[in-house]
């Protein structure tokens, strides 16, 4: 299901929060978009890459007890929507925190973690297509840790 090209294509965004910005309306997008949905054709050729900080604030969160396939070893895990300081919002896990330490409004910062491992690769069993390919990407920790 997740071939190497698919992981590779998104790596700059998943590994280090590379987004983009519409220079017409100044809206910041993450992940980067081909065109600005607000300016549409006017934004063609006017989308500029922008490096986001990976810092943000918890908009809402849950503790997942019935995990997505491949996330069994982490269960229960905290899943949150985080509003990045530059504006865009993302969904990912908050790690290294007690289940009761998270609140709406908590400050978080990014860490790199393993998101998914296809079966056949390693010691963790994995899921998916048997290629063993590993997907890395951002998760968050409460600010003040890393």
């Amino acid at each position: 299901m997740v071939g190497p090209s698919r992981i590779w294509r998104e790596a700059p965004s998943r590994y280090r929060f590379l987004g983009n910005r519409c220079t017409v309306c100044e809206e910041v997008y993450f992940p980067p978009r081909q065109i600005c949905p607000k300016c549409r054709r006017a934004s063609i050729g006017r989308m500029e890459p922008i490096q986001l900080s990976g810092n943000g604030e918890v908009v809402t969160y849950t503790v997942v007890y019935d995990p997505a396939v491949g996330h069994e070893l982490l269960t229960p895990y905290i899943l949150a929507i985080v509003k990045l300081d530059e504006g865009p919002r993302v969904t990912s896990q908050i790690v290294g925190a007690g289940l009761s330490e998270i609140m709406i409004g908590s400050r978080v910062k990014t860490v790199l973690r393993k998101l998914r491992e296809e079966k056949g690769g390693g010691e963790d069993g994995g899921s998916g297509d048997g290629s063993g390919v590993i997907t890395y990407g951002y998760k968050f920790v409460l600010d003040g840790q890393s």
Partner: peptide, 17 residues
């Protein structure tokens, strides 16, 4: 390490620091 950590993720965190 957590189940979502390995040499790559830990190396990255230390290098970022």
């Amino acid at each position: 390490p957590g189940p979502d950590e390995d040499t790559i993720t830990m190396a990255t965190e230390s290098a970022r620091n």
